[in-house]
């Protein structure tokens, strides 16, 4: 076989592979994009499986709609672009329903709502979390979140550090690279309860201004997918009605987060 033919064969092989990987999506499968790095809402365990409140809710919704859920893990930064690019059909990843995001995606009704809070290391000399009091301090948050936007806009005199994942922000707070973190109170609570989180503690009040923190976590969909949105809304209402939602809530939290 000549070199040229080898190239031709390689080309055909690649074309075949790409074609083989690509396939038309079936009707009764709903592909769900999630982050898998946001415990307790969605995370990856040491078996490489996606777990968490979001995943359980998604599973319950799919059961209710009588479709098969197919989960796709996607980094948070690219989670909306990948939805728009049709890599999956819905985002169930604790995404807050905000005006900014509603300009490019649609949301279902909320499936839970929790406020945001600051945490700091134990013994830090911080009691007031107003922008003036935190001027000059280093505050971490996950990038592309409501928390990041809030800090960028309101805490302009602080040094804001934005991390691809919440885990990385936590690591840096524990290490002392940053003075505070602003994030979802439940996510922070979960971490503070672990050994690594024992370094740190809540400070200041809870934040839930809808201008920044939106109207709770919803399922994000492409704007043209009205039908899917309605099906999700109906399923959501049904699992709240029949107690499934409460059961999942109780698996994770000692109080209701609706």
């Amino acid at each position: 076989m000549t070199q040229f033919n080898r190239f031709a064969v390689a080309a055909v092989a690649v074309a075949g592979m790409l074609g083989g990987i690509a396939s038309a999506s079936a009707q009764d499968v709903v592909r769900i994009g999630t982050e898998g790095a946001y415990p307790p809402f969605n995370f990856t365990d040491s078996n490489g499986e996606l777990k968490g409140f979001d995943i359980d809710i998604a599973q319950a919704l799919c059961d209710e709609m009588d479709v098969t859920c197919e989960f796709v893990a996607q980094d948070w930064d690219g989670i909306i672009p990948a939805l728009l690019a049709n890599r999956y059909d819905a985002i169930i990843a604790s995404m807050s329903i905000t005006e900014e995001r509603m300009e490019i995606v649609d949301f279902t009704d909320k499936y839970y709502q929790t406020p945001a809070r600051f945490i700091m290391r134990d013994g830090s000399d911080i009691s007031d979390t107003s922008p003036d009091a935190l001027a000059g301090m280093t505050i971490g948050a996950q990038s592309a979140t409501i928390h990041a936007n809030f800090l960028e806009d309101i805490y302009a005199d602080s040094d804001i550090r934005l991390y691809p994942t919440q885990d990385e922000a936590n690591l840096d707070l524990a290490a002392g690279r940053i003075d505070l973190i602003l994030a979802d109170s439940i996510v922070l609570y979960e971490w503070l309860e672990t050994d690594d989180g024992s370094c740190c503690t809540f400070v200041g009040d809870a934040y839930s201004d809808p201008d920044y923190f939106g109207f709770g976590a919803g399922i994000a969909l492409r704007q043209e997918d009205d039908e899917l949105r309605e099906r999700f809304n109906a399923a959501l209402a049904a699992i709240i009605e029949n107690g499934t939602w409460q059961d999942i809530n109780d698996d994770y939290f000692p109080f209701s987060i609706y």
Partner: peptide, 9 residues
């Protein structure tokens, strides 16, 4: 760039 994109989409 990431920051601007995350904010403006």
């Amino acid at each position: 760039t990431s920051l601007a994109y995350a904010r403006s989409f």
